[in-house]
Design a protein around this nucleic acid. Structure first.
Lengths: 340, 340
DNA sequence: TTGAAAGCGCTACCAG
DNA sequence: CTGGTAGCGCTTTCAA
């Protein structure tokens, strides 16, 4: 049915030489006589020869493909990460095989196992919100298949990790609110169990303590999705309590925007009555009114760094020591916290 | 260095049987004696055997991988498309190899050629804004490698295409503005050469004509990026002209939001003075104030339909007729056009 | 019911 | 400088 791909055998027959010679000629092996080589290369071009990728992979035991395992794609942060990965991978002639778990632990585990069959040279992974057991990654470690985690990483695994300094970022965000004169600051975050979320909260609490402000558990609320609607709800709960906050640190931009919306609906002014800072630096925050102050999560850099690390590991002929790289974030101030 | 993957040969040696028997046992071939089969399967599990993907691909001449060639990932529409593709692909046991062209024609061409080496079973592609020549896709057609275009598709190629009905959508959007009482309606769009953009403009003009409104070339402006900042600029140009529009059809949501922002800054009210409708139904439009009316571009469905079509083609043992599927869009009305 | 052997497309070794 | 051959891991015919 389908016209088959041209193989070196076809070229060899056509020219009456051996396959070995064709193979050598095509890889510019100097042992081949120049005329022979040119004739072969010319014919190869004419016949539209492309080396068969699968055969090459099998032979050389490498696929020039890296796997990417993430919870979702419809997410500005992951999209940025993918762009970083693609940019580095493309330059080095690698392809990216994408596998989304849809925030499902089972799908993540299944995908991770399936990719462990020699089809990728290494894996970049970000675990889901609900991932607790990491058995499905242990075999990468024991088989020494290059594996680099980024952003949401498991604690107990001997593997490279690239993360942003969530605690430091949480501290900076909270400190910023304090310096803008906020005295009653609330935290609204994503899933309680998520390690990035925990770190941001820790930074929040540390900042309050550092500046002598009380840490009030009633001012700390957790959601599940980290989305806009949840921001609205959590904010409603917050502003119907005993103590009305005058500052809110939201662990995601969408929560932050939901919070602002609620505050405005409650007849309060942002930032005068309540200052709000988000987290991630999504495009929407710059466009929303007022502009949302936020922490830049640097997805693009994260993707690039993780990929470079993975490729280093892939190309290294000896075991590299396992490292955890922590990336510092930057604070972006916009209208939602500009009180002074 | 790395601990090798377990192969059927290892199992065969361990059990003192031939590799053929192991192969058969693992594929549940009924010819194998039950006890032998069970012993083999048990050992395979114990040894953590995973069939080598590359060897399988080479042998069976299929990779269970589909290629995806898109201009960018940091784009809500493409993210939705990818989600649709992944969902269908995952269910059918296919993996997705992603290749972004970064809106560069050269990179698109290079990627397309590189993927034509037997590493994918078929390709899903959306061409870039600047793609004119499509030589790099012709070989897919001549070699009968399954190829399905979606969204931005080339005109002159004998290949499946899945597109949304941009002209109809443009008509609907404009008609909606007219029915809301707009009489001087402007169009702001992306690159003039982009076929989706042209279709939307055509629908716009048709609607004006159908309702007896004049088509004024001064009220039609094109940009290059389709982004927020461009919306601001185009809108500024529009509102500093002789005729002040009371309705704007923006060919992307970001252009629409830029336009709204500019209108507000100019001291006019949305939707009372100027009604604005966008295109794509990005999340930001629902959150922005006022909410942006828009056309739902149905990226998720587009991705699903395109993938199903591609897989049909991959699985079919005879040449399927080439089809173009046109998907109807739906209008979503929000505050930015609710004048009545 | 099992084994031997060919072959998918390619590279690399060993002879000549 | 060139050809023959083995082998990457697997399936599948053909023989036994």
């Amino acid at each position: 049915m389908k016209r088959e791909q041209v193989t070196i055998k076809d070229i060899a027959i056509e020219l009456g030489v051996s396959i070995s010679t064709v193979s050598r000629a095509l890889s510019n092996n100097p042992l081949v006589k120049p005329e022979t080589r040119e004739a072969i290369q010319k014919l190869a071009k004419e016949m539209n020869y492309h080396p068969n990728f699968t055969a090459l992979s099998l032979r050389q035991r490498k696929t020039r493909t890296i796997g990417l395992l993430i919870p979702q794609v419809v997410h500005e942060f992951f999209a940025q990460v993918i762009r970083g990965i693609e940019d580095v991978a493309y330059k080095q002639g690698y392809n990216v095989l994408i596998s989304t778990s849809n925030e499902s632990y089972d799908r993540e585990a299944r995908n991770a196992e399936e990719l462990l069959n020699g089809r990728i040279d290494g894996l970049l992974a970000c675990i889901t919100k609900e991932t607790s057991s990491i058995d499905h990654f242990e075999e990468y470690v024991s088989r020494e298949v290059p594996l680099v985690f980024f952003d949401c990483v498991p604690d107990d695994i001997l593997s490279d990790k690239i993360v942003i300094d969530d605690m430091d970022a949480g501290f900076k965000a909270t400190e910023h609110l304090i310096k803008q004169g906020c005295t009653r600051i609330a935290f609204i975050g994503g899933p309680k169990a998520l390690n990035t979320n925990q770190e941001r909260l820790l930074g929040f609490e540390n900042a309050l303590k550092a500046y002598g402000l009380p840490v009030d558990k009633k001012m700390i609320l957790h959601g599940t999705s980290g989305k806009y609607e949840e921001g609205l709800e959590l904010s409603r709960a917050l502003f119907s309590g005993d103590i009305i906050p005058n500052g809110v640190f939201a662990a995601t931009d969408m929560l932050g925007i939901g919070a602002i919306k609620n505050v405005k609906e409650a007849g309060l002014q942002v930032p005068t009555d309540v200052a709000v800072i988000g987290f991630s630096n999504w495009e929407i925050g710059a466009i929303y009114e007022p502009g949302l102050s936020t922490i830049d999560q640097r997805g693009y850099e994260l993707g690039k760094i993780a990929t470079n690390r993975l490729l280093d590991r892939i190309h290294s002929d000896h075991q590299l020591p396992v490292t955890t790289k922590v990336i510092k974030t930057t604070l972006i101030q916009r209208g939602s916290t500009s009180r002074l």
